[in-house]
């Protein structure tokens, strides 16, 4: 029988000796704010680009690239028989990307749980996964192209092979970094296995898992583009190669720019928010305590 059930309140104990209060936030000068630093970096990049255009005629100007992008996005004519294409190649690539990640992230996560949670699995799999991690994504791109030839299988496999080690290594290191005292505490209180897995293992390694997802998404995008460049006849990588082969460098640069914009938007809109949420407990303001607080 619980004692608490008989005593719904305990007013004599309910006065905490001190109430925590948030420390006042310090104002940051606008020149140090992230948006200003980001804008400055982009401005510097554009100035360097325009300078390169002025000294080397093979470097397209900002204006040429933007105009080309407009035609590509709007499906207009590039001159001759060639017409702009954007949504078709993009949807094909995104489909491959999503399928690859839908396989690679869970498989990598499962491997990470096994490697992090079991000494036996660690001894068998740890080195293998590390080898997979140190191989650059270009290796996976070529390997997948060699194995599966031209088509959609090679890019999907390349995305899977790139995502798996990032997930596995990050998640397993997160689990291995958990305080062993927390496992002992769980043992002492007889916490059920399922709750321990979800609250202790996954909860504790969540920020590592999100970092793994973030790296997997970014690196897999590179792999996908390389496979499409060399081993397919469709997708955004293939489209970039198409303009490169045609020596339309404004088209090539326009597509490179789109790759960068895509991954930057993905990072800003999804991944950083996810990471922020998963590390919310580490970002709480330091508290000060009222006068008289003795503990």
């Amino acid at each position: 029988m619980s004692y608490a059930a008989d005593l719904p309140t305990a007013p004599e104990f309910s006065q905490a000796p001190g109430t925590p209060q948030s420390a006042p936030a310090q104002a940051v000068h606008w020149t140090r704010k992230p948006w200003f630093i980001n804008a400055l970096a982009v401005a510097i990049l554009l100035v360097v680009w325009q300078y390169l255009n002025s000294v080397n005629e093979r470097v397209p100007s900002i204006n040429e690239v933007v105009s080309f992008l407009g035609v590509e996005l709007g499906g207009g004519s590039h001159g001759g028989v060639s017409r702009g294409e954007f949504w078709g190649p993009l949807s094909i690539s995104l489909q491959r990307y999503v399928i690859g990640l839908a396989i690679g992230v869970p498989v990598g996560g499962l491997l990470g749980l096994l490697i992090g949670g079991s000494r036996r699995f660690r001894s068998v799999l740890n080195d293998t996964v590390l080898v997979l991690l140190v191989l650059p994504s270009v290796v996976w791109a070529f390997t997948a192209s060699l194995w599966f030839g031209i088509g959609s299988t090679a890019p999907v496999v390349a995305v899977v092979l790139t995502a798996v080690p990032f997930m596995a290594v990050n998640l397993s290191s997160g689990i291995r970094g958990l305080d062993p005292g927390l496992a002992l505490m769980s043992d002492a209180f007889r916490v059920p296995r399922l709750r321990r897995a979800t609250h202790l293992l996954v909860g504790g390694a969540l920020s590592n898992a999100v970092t793994g997802v973030r790296l997997a998404l970014m690196t897999s995008w590179n792999s996908l583009l390389i496979v499409e460049w060399f081993g397919t006849a469709s997708g955004v990588g293939w489209r970039a190669k198409h303009w490169y082969d045609a020596q339309r460098f404004e088209g090539f640069v326009a597509w490179i720019l789109l790759f960068v914009v895509f991954i930057t938007l993905l990072d800003w809109l999804v991944l950083r928010r996810l990471e922020h949420r998963s590390t919310r407990w580490q970002q709480q303001p330091t508290l000060t305590f009222a006068e008289g607080e003795v503990t």
Partner: peptide, 14 residues
């Protein structure tokens, strides 16, 4: 004496 801090994270406590 900790009714008021149930929603806080441990690192926010002394």
């Amino acid at each position: 004496g900790l009714s008021d801090v149930a929603h806080l994270y441990p690192a926010q406590l002394s």
